[in-house]
Design a protein around this nucleic acid. Sequence first.
DNA 1: TGTACATCAGTGAACGCGCGTTCACTGATGTAC
DNA 2: TGTACATCAGTGAACGCGCGTTCACTGATGTAC
Lengths: 191, 191
Amino acid sequence: MRYEKGHKDETRRHILDVASARFRESGIAAVGLAGIMAEAGLTNGAFYTHFASKEDLVREVLVEALTRREERHKANLENGVPVETVIRDYLSTRHRDHAGTGCPTAALVGEIARHPRATRDAFTGKVSDLVVLMAEQIRQGTAEERRRKAITIYSIMVGALQLARAVNDKKLSDEILENAVEAALAIANER
Amino acid sequence: MRYEKGHKDETRRHILDVASARFRESGIAAVGLAGIMAEAGLTNGAFYTHFASKEDLVREVLVEALTRREERHKANLENGVPVETVIRDYLSTRHRDHAGTGCPTAALVGEIARHPRATRDAFTGKVSDLVVLMAEQIRQGTAEERRRKAITIYSIMVGALQLARAVNDKKLSDEILENAVEAALAIANER
DNA sequence: TGTACATCAGTGAACGCGCGTTCACTGATGTAC
DNA sequence: TGTACATCAGTGAACGCGCGTTCACTGATGTAC
């Protein structure tokens, strides 16, 4: 079979999308290539038509998923969506309960720390960009203060979401999210 | 060979110590039982004399490691060590660069969220205890306010330490830690 | 217009490997008589 | 005191399994002449 133009790009994108969701749901190490390919409607061997290795896929998934989040931040900026909304969405029970479509950082940061340099480099670049975008969204303070606030708010959000996901007690989990919202909002708005 | 009294407990403790360090350094999934046993100076098969399964070991490692941290918090309380010191130690470059001897939560929280109920139950119980202990260490505010502060500070510390470890850029990594220290101290001391 | 060959995304079996787990066995010491 | 047996932490080979990766092959379409 020969395929129509753009078919390969579509397939590649489909594999990326499937892998992206599975990685965020179950972790990188726990997800096998055979499973990803099967869910994408393909067989094992076709994987290497699109990616050089699993590590290559991981790097591309991270860049892809974090780029999408960047685009959302940019759209938020243009539409005047306040940082308060971003904070509340990030620290919502909905986000906690749907890791597969959520923030790749919160889902994978622990694993990323143990991945090869190239993967961490890609991640680092995207996190740097996100911090800059978040800083722009904050209204109070000098540029330097807004950058600091963005970094702190990012740390709170990532830490709280992960704790809320790991903890096996709905009350404590909700409490973690609520306190984080309050703290992040206070930091965003303080002078 | 028959062994002196207490030998088995010592061996078990030794396996726990080795596993605890390896898990925190490399992650649970990436560490095999054969490697742990070899480092403990034993062979594969002896593992099941001490633990029912890898998951059983994981649970025991978490309880053990978090209990030791609890004990440190209790000693801090008795010796009047201020929460500021705890925050600075937690968010130090030393802690960032030595995951194997550091906080199990920061090292493993992402993986724990995907482990079975029994493991998460054990983790949840220990986190609850730690929050109570941290709240006691905070001086400003009512009991309820101190609990909230403890939860928020814990979220910041866990998130910032993980981000600082994952990011592949010393400057950004240090920046993340420094901002988190500042934010955590501000929360601890605000009225 | 018809035929021969090139292209290439995808197939599916096979590779070596390390995983968690099992189990028959070892051998130094303790206990019973 | 000497002998036979019980105990049990640890040995080390083997189990089935799923992993990431490789590779000879397929077959529909495009291109050359």
